[in-house]
């Protein structure tokens, strides 16, 4: 008998094994929902799939008579715009600061402590400050996401760039590279796959900050909507919205991974020593 830690699932079995827990969870939900509805046909806590589909039809296909927009489309657009601008600004800032701190001893000495200090501030705690300074509009939400994720990303990228072997940096200099060219041609391309990874990992916290900000002060957005309909115990809208948000997160993650794999193939080829 082989040890358990040496037994490996293969091919189809592996896929089946992965789907099993998900199927069990879905089944449990259906059973529980059924049970509650048997007792009380107007139960709102565990809506049936049919009820969810019906509510989403209203949210995703019909215009809101007040605004003239389809709620799901408007919410998605608003949230993704906020998220996109914040992530873009964070990635750009990370690239500039991370490369500088990772490569230049003067930048490390000057900016390292500042970034380290900012990264320990809990972002939600300064949300009131952001609302006071930037108002309740788009800016404060975008800035919250930006402040929430950038310090971590900068530190991650700086340590990655700092870990480029000194031999490479010296070699580049013996080939005539200036500080600028070392940054542009040696450090930047090697930093990019890590930056994309870092954006992927930061998307989780970014969604948290986005939904928090939307929950507190907004009039459109995915987070705004689920906190709005919570007042009516509208689980038939909240649950599909959560699924939709998760789906968006997965798709963004896969797109970033695909970009990294095609644009930086060298970083993804497995292989022994370099």
């Amino acid at each position: 008998m082989r040890r358990l830690l040496n037994a490996r699932p293969r091919g189809g079995g592996r896929l089946l094994l992965g789907l099993l827990p998900i199927a069990i969870l879905v089944l449990l939900y259906l059973v529980a929902s059924q049970a509650r509805h048997a007792e009380n046909p107007r139960d709102k806590i565990l809506p049936t799939p049919a009820a969810m589909a019906q509510s989403m039809e209203i949210m995703a296909l019909q215009e809101d008579p007040r605004t003239g927009e389809i709620p799901l489309v408007a919410d998605t657009q608003a949230s993704l715009t906020r998220l996109g601008i914040a992530m873009g600004a964070a990635a750009l800032t990370t690239l500039v600061l991370g490369l500088s701190i990772g490569l230049l001893p003067y930048a490390r000495a000057g900016l390292g402590p500042l970034v380290a200090t900012i990264s320990v501030i809990p972002p939600i705690a300064i949300l009131p400050i952001l609302f006071i300074v930037f108002g309740l509009g788009e800016t404060s939400k975008i800035v919250l996401i930006f402040i929430g994720i950038t310090p971590f990303m900068v530190r991650d990228l700086a340590s990655h760039v700092g870990a480029i072997p000194e031999e490479q940096i010296v070699k580049a200099q013996t080939l005539g590279a200036s500080t600028w060219l070392v940054a542009l041609k040696v450090a930047l391309p090697q930093a990019m796959p890590r930056l994309i990874d870092s954006v992927r990992f930061s998307l989780g916290p970014a969604w948290v900050f986005l939904i928090s900000a939307e929950a507190i002060a907004s009039d459109v957005g995915l987070g705004y909507r689920i906190f709005l309909v919570r007042r009516y115990l509208a689980m038939d809208i909240i649950l599909p919205y959560v699924v939709w948000i998760s789906l968006l997160a997965v798709v963004i993650d896969l797109l970033l991974l695909a970009w990294s794999r095609t644009a930086f193939r060298w970083a993804h080829t497995p292989g022994g020593r370099r």
Partner: peptide, 16 residues
């Protein structure tokens, strides 16, 4: 500088 070339034991080529 470019007047002195170098080859180290490891890591002297650019992986990307």
């Amino acid at each position: 500088g470019p007047d002195r070339g170098v080859v180290f034991q490891r890591y002297s080529v650019f992986p990307h």
